[in-house]
Design a protein around this nucleic acid. Structure first.
Lengths: 127, 127
DNA sequence: CGGCATCCAACTAGATACTG
DNA sequence: CAGTATCTAGTTGGATGCCG
């Protein structure tokens, strides 16, 4: 039996920093909303996405789309037209995220009320 | 048939901002590692946690534990001793996160190599 | 239309010092 | 031992203006 400090001192070899890696790819404030919009409606132009995602700025939408494209989750197709047209779609790899987001979504549906209640109790106990 | 702008303009009513809510609770750089450590080893003292989680600062560990406690995911038990002893454990609600983290972990295991490859291709194509 | 570049405010997180 | 407090560097994100 190893000591705890030996057993877990290199967590990225125990298979749990992988969660962190994954969250860097799929997490953040906007990515799930972009992926969701593109999953429901497979082809969307830049401004259609912008309308679908409340409160996102142009800069953030561009930036997040670029990251998703770089990671192979989203496809970007630019048409050489005037005015320019760019269509975004989910890739095959991007589709593999659907069940992941579903599980997260499901957890929230089932347990958010408990979290809220716990927060209230906690804050009350501190005042 | 509603227009896209009507159908999705209020995403937090369509059930997808819930993912964002959940990620605020379970995401971040440290929370999954804290939860993982406490799930593997059900009772850990502050400094044991600190040893188990590489590179976390005392400040971050305190702060994240406080948030997890407030959200009802982690239990904090302080013993009135000298020197002080504080034991942390996962609550019942916290345990419901295990499958969520597992799905995220599994996605990383299955698809991270594709993401890496996509990044290399993308970066190459830009140089 | 779909960006990119720049500036700036706000938040985050690390280092350090101190405490019951 | 298990924190709290403070300071500061770095990062994030919004606003604005310009461009092919």
């Amino acid at each position: 039996m190893k000591k705890p400090s030996e057993r877990l001192s290199k967590n990225n070899e125990t298979g749990d920093c992988q969660v962190r890696d994954a969250l860097l790819i799929i997490g953040g404030k906007w990515k799930n909303m972009i992926m969701h919009a593109l999953t429901i409606q497979p082809y969307l132009r830049f401004n259609q996405l912008k309308v679908n995602i409340p409160d996102i700025s142009q800069k953030m939408l561009t930036q997040q789309l670029r990251e998703l494209e770089r990671d192979g989750l989203v496809n970007r197709k630019a048409y050489a037209e005037i005015p320019p047209r760019v269509e975004y779609s989910v890739t095959k790899l991007g589709l593999t995220l659907t069940p992941v987001y579903q599980v997260i979504n499901q957890w929230q549906l089932l347990h958010m009320s408990e979290v809220i209640k716990s927060r209230e109790d906690f804050d009350d106990s501190k005042s």
